[in-house]
Write a protein that binds this DNA or RNA. Structure first.
Lengths: 131, 131
DNA sequence: TTAACCCATACTTAATTGGTAGGGATTAAA
DNA sequence: TTTAATCCCTACCAATTAAGTATGGGTTAA
């Protein structure tokens, strides 16, 4: 039961942008500070852009910026963009004949709700320097 | 962010045994009811036995039984036996130079504690039929 | 003695993770 | 107008993990 490094890198990059908000930063700046491969970070930022969490400007002196205020962005949102919907077991949310009587399913449902609650309760504003 | 099927199968098997407590059941009975491969379940049960969660008796008419009362066994315990210690990110709990100032680390620490709290709060007695 | 069980280890196959390679498109500045 | 720094896209690849199989042995009640 682990989140991937993609979630870790993505979160770090977004926190980095939150610290600069509303200014933009380039991939290479972020990659250097957070010790992430430039190429890999490019791909991750692409996912954030497609989800309208960040905006990009092309060309020389281009870069990425957070679109919303850090206090309006939940950690859960960031993670679900790179990892897909949060749910601790494959079968949860899926079609299962014994769904209503499956005892272990009750565990995963309860846990999934708890994880979401925790991650959506943390906002980027709580994780940046200036607060 | 998923638990493995090993955790799912393991939990199902242990719930199955909890329903029979304090009686024993054979691997093949459990495997059939829970739709798990006999060979795979054998291995999983071996881990539970080594952790003194279940006891086994060999020979014809042998089988496995839960050692403790279902109300004294937490789901978290079952899962940690097959999946190892619960922690949502590799770096958590490890040596990191920037541990005390790592903003994303705070997320994983908080989340890990929350997950443990949830899973250790659920006891097998809450998941069995008779209750 | 034999059948039903537990026990151990090695192997296999498929999917996922965690990237890299190579290029193209865009734009500010020299 | 050229150059250089940036964003953007797709394909590829290697290592690890997940999920199970195969094989064979040991134990014990009937």
């Amino acid at each position: 039961m682990k989140f991937s490094t993609k979630a870790e890198y993505g979160l770090k990059a977004i926190i980095n942008l939150a610290n600069a908000y509303p200014e933009q930063r380039s991939i290479s700046e972020i990659a250097k500070e957070e010790r992430i491969s430039v190429k890999y970070l490019e791909r991750i930022m692409g996912e954030f852009r497609k989800s309208d969490l960040v905006k990009s400007s092309k060309g020389k002196a281009g870069g990425y910026a957070l679109i919303r205020q850090p206090s309006r962005v939940a950690v859960g949102e960031v993670i679900e963009i790179v990892e897909g919907p949060i749910s601790p077991m494959k079968c949860v949310g899926m079609d299962c004949a014994k769904k209503h009587i499956c005892p272990s399913g009750r565990v995963w449902t309860k846990l999934g709700a708890q994880i979401k609650k925790t991650l959506y309760g943390i906002k980027l504003s709580e994780l940046i320097r200036s607060n």
